[in-house]
Write a protein that binds this DNA or RNA. Structure first.
Lengths: 339, 339
DNA sequence: ACTTGGCACTCGATCTGCGGGAGTGCCAGC
DNA sequence: GCTGGCACTCCCGCAGATCGAGTGCCAAGT
């Protein structure tokens, strides 16, 4: 049913279509690829491939273009991941080394990905929920306004201001600070609520209201920020593909400004260390019917803390894009592990 | 030379062209505006206006469209700043209240501006250099790796990691922390270098290398971040104007991804509390020949700490856009002052 | 049984020519 | 100085003709 030659033809169609952006016909195929048979034979194979839904004609008497199903088969069975050229490798290093803090790393990564793949790049900030508390600092702006600064192991810093009911003494603040740090330092953020629940009981009753206010806000911060932040770049590349998204550029751009949509695009994929490719309608949302997303998790060391990826037209260079995404994710992970 | 009627005609041309996006002819003008004269008279006035360079014809026997010079006259003398509707006012409040931290304020502001004006929004982060130090925290990750956390009065938090030559005792760290805070808290960041120059001399010689390392990094942080960060939003709106930027959408989008270009667009304008309008080629860069930028400074209280604005086609609704930009800037300023 | 060359056919893309319409500039008259 | 009239210009949209790439099918060859 799917003999080797059919697969070879499909591969050739995908590659040619990606390269030329034009429906590819039987004659062009035998000319550009050494298939060893005549156009007529290819036409028969193509008819079969169309029958099974791997390719389609935009209109009668035009060449064929791959369908989502065709691309799917291509990435699953016909293509590998193209390693980057040494020049590209060097570009990654040059670009990412010298990042000064987490924001900077994310910022540079998103630019780098956009530049490397010439597509839209999406990078999720390392998540709070999967990281650990490194330090908590309490800071009295006024006697009753307390600023909480939360520093996590992956370099993120969160801050929040609390208005306490009544003044808080420096002594109490110092006490609370050391207890907080003793309690939560080094444990995962996800476990903090239980750990902090009993904390206010350790204080004398008259100190409990301000302590409770501070702890509550701290917990809120952790919970709130579980909805992640996402950086986006290279949207200019999208307009280069306006022909691929007939009339869809605006909806796509609008959708991309919604964090929620971006999160969904990066996906809650099964194994986050594995490259994920979502093709066309495999993505949620009608506006992404002609788009593919290549994403992968990245992290410091072995556990993935967030995802990054690129979005482009279904007609994209999958091997190259996958190679770039994977290489960038690995290098970012290494940088995070060092910091 | 520029009598009242000519000005009225120019105003009518600008308003009609902005509304319809089509060159406006003499007949349409007298129909839509009560000018009290005949088309023929208007034609004479238009010929004069064209002579002086305020309007132009895209081609012979077409209507007129305003030139950059025409728009300039319009915003300088013919139009005011349109106040927002109560509904829009409420939208601003609803959107910006409930911001949790500085990043969040900037993020919401840029979305709000984009939505309100339906154009590309640009918001500069409140600058470090014009703010003051609220607190400096030092934190030993390992005995010789020190994290510096810098909190400014406008809510920005910067962090940096320093590798010191040899271990730093907790006592020394505490000492340095209190001295640092005593020295720099409350003074402008711009003055910190002088204030910190002598600091290491207060320590015994064997402690000076780590102290110097930390102080140096701290100073670097202040200096580095003087190149500002900028948030961008509503790029989708740009594509709605692709007809206004024939073939220029991609260059513009690419330019907008360069921080440097954005900074230049917001401009080092004279009086930052004043609304600034840059029309067409008044902007630096060939790609912005068909774009206008409306910007204004904003700040906590009376001093402007950064700028924000929008970018759109020269054919934009200047009074409305100016109103929206001004209103948002004021409200953001108020929020920053509260925090 | 598969492959091949030939052939008629389809259909989008491109070019052409041809009004229609909007708008202008100018002029003569009020 | 304003107005109506008029000839002129040029863009835009439409219909038809042409072109060419590509297909499907069939009969013949290996």
């Amino acid at each position: 049913m799917l003999d080797d030659r059919k697969l070879a033809v499909l591969r050739a169609i995908v590659e040619d279509y990606v390269a030329t952006e034009e429906p590819v016909g039987s004659k062009a195929l035998v000319e550009r690829h050494a298939l060893g048979v005549s156009p007529a034979t290819i036409r028969n194979e193509m008819a079969a491939l169309e029958e099974e839904g791997f390719i389609a004609q935009p209109h009668t008497s035009a060449g064929r273009i791959p369908t989502d199903k065709g691309y799917r088969l291509f990435v699953d069975r016909l293509s590998g991941v193209k390693p980057l050229t040494p020049a590209e490798q060097r570009a990654i290093h040059r670009f990412l080394d010298g990042s000064v803090d987490l924001d900077d790393v994310v910022d540079r990564t998103v630019r780098l990905l956009a530049q490397l793949t010439r597509q839209v790049a999406v990078v999720q900030y390392p998540s709070l929920s999967r990281s650990k508390v490194r330090h908590i600092e309490l800071l009295a702006l006024t006697p009753s306004r307390i600023m909480i600064v939360l520093i996590t192991t992956n370099g993120r810093v969160e801050q929040r201001v609390v208005d306490c009911p009544g003044p808080v003494s420096e002594v109490l603040l110092g006490d609370l600070r050391s207890r907080l740090n003793a309690t939560v330092t080094g444990i995962g953020l996800a476990e903090t609520p239980e750990a902090l629940a009993e904390l206010s009981l350790a204080f004398v009753p008259e100190d409990r209201p301000p302590v409770a206010a501070i702890v509550t806000t701290l917990l809120e911060t952790l919970a709130e920020r579980r909805d992640e932040r996402i950086a986006l770049g290279g949207t200019a590349n999208l307009t280069r593909f306006s022909s691929d998204f007939p009339g869809m550029v605006v909806p796509v751009l609008e959708a991309l400004e919604e964090q929620v949509v971006l999160l969904r695009l990066l996906g809650e994929a099964s194994d986050p260390t594995e490259l994920t490719v979502r093709i066309g309608r495999e993505n949620q949302g009608e506006e992404f019917a002609a788009a593919s997303v290549v994403s992968v998790g990245y992290g410091d060391g072995d556990t993935a803390v967030a995802k990054l990826g690129v979005l482009g037209p279904t007609r994209m260079d999958y091997p190259g894009t996958m190679g770039a995404v994977r290489a960038v994710a690995r290098y970012v992970g290494r940088i995070l592990a060092e910091a």
